[in-house]
Design a binder for these strands. Structure first.
Lengths: 344, 344
DNA sequence: CTGAAAGCGCTTACAG
DNA sequence: CTGAAAGCGCTTACAG
């Protein structure tokens, strides 16, 4: 392996100068820089990351923590973040909690992050007090995506979950529905993030605004995925007097609902309307009405907000670290799964 | 930050002994080890990865390269691999090619992997000659998942794509179908992996075994995703005299086919049967018949085959590096998207 | 089983 | 704009 001394010798300069030239520092004359680059090129030199990290203190890596990479939102976010990070020359260390408590513990109670990364991105990962202080002890910059997962001093990118849920529910109300159920993820779940709670709030607000009283019998919690949607809907149907519409906290739950309704012999949307939140890649295929949220854009923006300060760039106006969360817009997408309520 | 000298001083031993004790090397007396661990615990000591890497030469990291983390198969594989790697104390550097040529180049033509990882996992990423030699120059152990992406000297985990396609096609034949179309990914696509070709071969073999001649008009290529399935099916329908059944190279393409058929006013399975390969998480929701492949198991097994040698463990019997690929089983899952062909 | 010392390959003040 | 030297915090022969 060729190292920096080899390049220095060939270029006829010191290793300090090689280091500076290769990193593009301004304190190197054009001629010297040219010679160094030529020598490095000729020797196929590549800096040793370990040595550079030890000496320089920067790792050039970012940890990205997601609950489940297999779920639509997290996959899309990670894809956007990965692209942005690599474009900027950073490595991405992936941490997928996978719904396992031990994974959370491993992440924050062991040295999984200690001196391994320059910054942390937490996606929909709410922290307990002990975890929060472990994180604070790391003393790293970071950013969060999704509501209810804020970390003091870190910027946050998200949508307005309350508004999204309100819009979804209002869509059903405008179609004439009155018995509107809500299915969502279990807040006791280790992976719970309070987007659930916000979405429930939006649902209830919309009902009240229409003069309806939220009915606990029409509000079922399960896991925040396809199976959870199926189970929640089955439970809903077991309770008798089924709703004429279901607002699911996310598209994956809505998809589970579609399955359960079909199994129960109920037609969508003739018997029951269904709407979710996300605009999952398969929502179009399923004809699922939904509230679209910009997943890739949230990832890209969060990555930018994370790296700009590291690069010495000051955050853009409106993106200040201490400011309120950056809220990205959502929009109603009406497909075939929602239709007017039938007259009684 | 507390460092190894602090621990050494507190424990009353040399830094060499601290290093040995903390890494669990056998050449440390029980009593000494106990004292060192207690000191480390008391000081909240965590080793500096950069220093350890520079001095020891091991990075404790593995690069995992996938075409698109947002596609079902790759998400599931990465989840399984991530779990295995972290369990074993390794970090996972994610590289998502995202269908971009520049990302491929960045990965292998720059020093993106140079001295950053101890091993590489390539998932469905076929290499060009230049890329292959860049990879060889890295001189790292590795493993591949999926056929057609073999790297000399690296073990490979995959399914038998030819057999899977044969089973899918035979299922349609047994239902009485004769005009069976095939839709698949474009092999000129930068992300192409020859699983496509194997699957086409299995399709053609099954047709021939049934006395049928593969009809080029019934074989359409597009991109290996939902949209590609839609476009390929639209093209199929434009060609007139539509097939009575479609075998899609993967479930995501099959889902695209479902969309295109619905738009065209064709019912599934009454007018057209559809089958894919994967058993995607949403195939059940869509009632899609498919050939299930064990994605998580392929990831887990490949990770194990990668790490066992690094840990000094000899690969298990039948998992030798130079041996033939490890082939995992697939199985036919019949749902509602396939039905007997109607009599003419 | 343990320690003193060299060395891993860079970057960073400091001095000029 | 450039260089000599120290130092980043470990691990690894080597010797005992």
């Amino acid at each position: 392996m060729t190292k920096i001394d080899d390049v220095a010798r060939l270029a006829g300069v010191s290793t300090a100068t090689v280091s500076r030239a290769l990193r593009g520092l301004p304190t190197v004359s054009a001629a010297t820089r040219r010679r160094v680059l030529a020598a490095a090129e000729q020797l196929q030199y590549a800096v040793s990351p370990s040595a550079s990290r030890l000496a320089g203190g920067r790792t050039g890596s970012v940890a990205v923590v997601v609950p489940r990479i297999t779920r639509w939102f997290f996959g899309v976010v990670v894809e956007a973040v990965e692209d942005f990070l690599h474009e900027a020359g950073y490595d991405l260390l992936l941490h997928n909690l996978g719904g396992r408590e031990r994974n959370r513990q491993r992440l924050l109670r062991t040295a999984a992050l200690h001196k391994r990364v320059d910054a942390i991105m937490l996606v929909a990962t709410p922290l307990r007090a002990a975890e929060m202080s472990a994180l604070a002890a790391l003393d790293l910059p970071g950013v969060t995506i999704s509501s209810g997962t804020e970390v003091p001093g870190w910027p946050c990118v998200r949508i307005d979950d309350v508004a999204a849920a309100r819009t979804a529910t209002r869509h059903l109300l405008e179609l004439g529905h009155r018995r509107i159920a809500h299915i969502s993820g279990d807040p006791d779940d280790e992976l719970a993030f309070s987007a659930h709670l916000d979405r429930r709030r939006g649902y209830q607000e919309a009902l009240r605004a229409a003069g309806l009283r939220p009915d606990p019998a029409l509000d079922v919690e399960s896991s925040f995925d396809i199976d959870g949607g199926t189970r929640a809907t089955e439970e809903l149907l077991r309770r008798g007097d089924p709703p004429t519409a279901i607002f699911a906290s996310c598209d994956e739950m809505a998809m589970g609902a579609l399955t359960a309704l079909r199994e129960a012999g109920l037609r969508v949307p003739q018997d029951v309307s269904v709407i979710g939140i996300d605009d999952h890649a398969l929502s179009g295929v399923l004809g699922l009405s939904t509230i679209a949220q910009p997943a890739a854009e949230q990832g890209r923006l969060a990555a930018k907000m994370l790296l700009d300060p590291l690069a010495g760039r000051s955050p853009e106006a409106g993106m200040s670290t201490t400011a309120a969360p950056v809220i990205l817009p959502t929009r109603l997408v009406v497909r075939e799964s929602t239709a007017p309520a039938r007259a009684h």
